[in-house]
Structures are given as structure tokens and as C-alpha cells.
């Protein structure tokens, strides 16, 4: 029994993100195959799997940075609009943190965390700056507010990117390999921020290779291989006793050293 419909503990029964029979191809490659996934409010779901398994595509499909070919994606029960203002509005509710940070290179750190507040949320400048500074304080970067992204380390940039996403008061946050581009000594400062968000009850979908984070912060671990969800279980069970051959193989490779 290695189906995706495993029972798993959820902090709340109310689904926030739902994917139903989602499919996508890149040319001949079937990168998402009949994906069913439900993320409850307040839940932290960690997606792991070998590279090319479709986990990043899955993450990016949730706010439609990647269009899917068939299936439904629902946020709070509402289907994701295809394009235009409706989609933009929905994206503002679902924050995203990227592997390569993607801070706006021509704007200061403070402007990075205020721009969308002003332009999308239509907040006043003073209000946006107060909120921006508070969030920079929270991620430990208040003193860097007037610098440009290129002047910060990778870990600092990623913490600014998290603050930028939080500034929109999102209902959920998507993390697409947030620590994969970081030097080892900077990974922890980013994971610390993510852990504290998880502890506060933020709904999170996290694609990562950080098994320590998966064990300590996740409510569920979703294991993907070849475009399918192979296992979807609580982390203790998954790491102690992976049911599928694919997962056993994957874990033996990454946990050996």
C-alpha cells in the first residue's frame, strides 16, 4: 500500500489548498501525474523527492507560476483563475519564497518589502514602511533596510524574501527549495525563521532537501518520484519506516553520510 491517500494528522480539518487530479507535461515528460493533495489550514507540508520528480513544479503550480493542463487547484475552495486580475489577487494571498531569492535588484531592502504592500494591497507609504520594518526586525535584518539586495549575503537575502512575502499577510506560504542556493553556514538562519513561522501556525508547503526541517517542523511529508506522490505521511512514520522502494532508496542515499 503505497498510495497517496494515507491518513495523516492535521492541525485543522479545513482545507486551504486542494489539488485534484492535476496533470502537466513538459514535452514528452509527464512531470505531474494525477496529483491529489490537500493542505489544511495551519498545516506544514514538506515535499521531498529526487531531482526531476516534479516537486518544484508542484509548488509553482499552486500559485500558477506554472500552468497545469488538467485537474483543479483550489484555494479556500475557490478554483484558481486562469489569468488576469483574479489570478493576481489570489497570488497576493499565497506568498512564495524562491530558491534564488529573487529580491528586486533595483530596490532597497525596505522597498522590497513595501512595494507590493503599496501597489497591490494599496496601503499608505507610512503604514507599509512600519510593517516592513517590523518584519525586517523579525527576521533580524532591521539594520540592513537601506541596503540593496546585492550587498547582502544569501542567507540575509532569503530572510528578506520571507519578510517580503509575509508583508502581504498571506494565508499560506510556498517555499521552493529555499535553502538550496545557500552556503551551509547560512542554511540555519533561514530554517530558524521558517521554524518559527511553522510554530505560529502559518500554512506552509515546503519543497526542500533539509530532512532535519522535515522531521522537526512538518505535519506531513509528501514524497514524490517521477511526477507522482508516492507517500504522504507524518514525518516520524515516513523516516522510520518508508513503505515504498523508491522512498527507501532515496532516504538511504541522502541519510548515509
Amino acid at each position: 500500500m503505497t498510495g497517496p491517500q494515507e491518513a495523516a494528522a492535521r492541525p485543522s480539518g479545513e482545507p486551504l489548498i486542494e489539488l485534484r487530479r492535476v496533470n502537466k507535461h513538459y514535452g514528452a515528460l509527464h512531470v505531474l501525474q494525477d496529483i491529489d493533495l490537500t493542505v489544511g489550514r495551519g498545516e506544514v507540508v514538506v515535499v521531498i523527492g529526487p531531482s526531476g520528480s516534479g516537486k518544484s513544479t508542484l509548488c509553482r503550480a499552486i500559485n500558477r507560476l506554472e500552468a497545469v493542463e488538467s485537474g483543479d487547484i483550489l484555494i479556500e475552495g475557490q478554483p484558481l483563475p486562469a489569468e488576469g486580475k483574479g489570478l493576481a489577487k489570489l497570488r497576493a494571498e499565497v506568498g512564495m519564497v524562491f530558491q534564488s531569492f529573487n529580491l528586486f535588484a533595483h530596490r532597497t531592502v525596505l522597498q522590497n518589502v513595501t512595494l507590493a504592500q503599496v501597489k497591490v494591497r494599496k496601503r499608505g507609504k507610512a503604514e507599509a514602511e512600519a510593517k516592513g520594518r517590523a518584519l525586517l526586525e523579525r527576521v533580524g535584518l532591521a539594520s540592513q533596510a537601506d541596503k540593496y539586495p546585492a550587498q547582502l549575503s544569501g542567507g540575509q537575502q532569503q530572510r528578506v524574501a520571507i519578510a517580503r512575502a509575509l508583508a502581504m499577510d498571506p494565508k499560506a506560504l510556498l517555499f521552493d527549495e529555499p535553502t538550496s542556493a545557500l552556503d551551509p553556514e547560512m542554511i540555519n538562519e533561514v530554517l530558524e525563521v521558517m521554524r518559527s513561522l511553522a510554530a505560529e501556525g502559518m500554512t506552509m508547503v515546503v519543497v526542500t532537501h533539509e530532512m532535519g526541517f522535515a522531521r522537526s517542523a512538518a505535519n506531513r511529508v509528501v514524497f514524490m518520484a517521477d511526477g507522482r506522490i508516492v507517500e504522504d505521511r507524518v514525518p516520524e512514520e515516513f523516516f522510520a519506516d518508508p513503505r515504498s522502494e523508491r522512498a527507501r532508496d532515496f532516504l538511504s542515499k541522502i541519510l548515509k553520510h
Partner: peptide, 9 residues
């Protein structure tokens, strides 16, 4: 992508 993910049109 970052701009769009923040809800910008």
C-alpha cells in the same frame, strides 16, 4: 515571477 507571486498584475 517574484513580482507576480506578490499579486502584481
Amino acid at each position: 515571477e517574484a513580482a507576480r507571486s506578490l499579486g502584481m498584475t
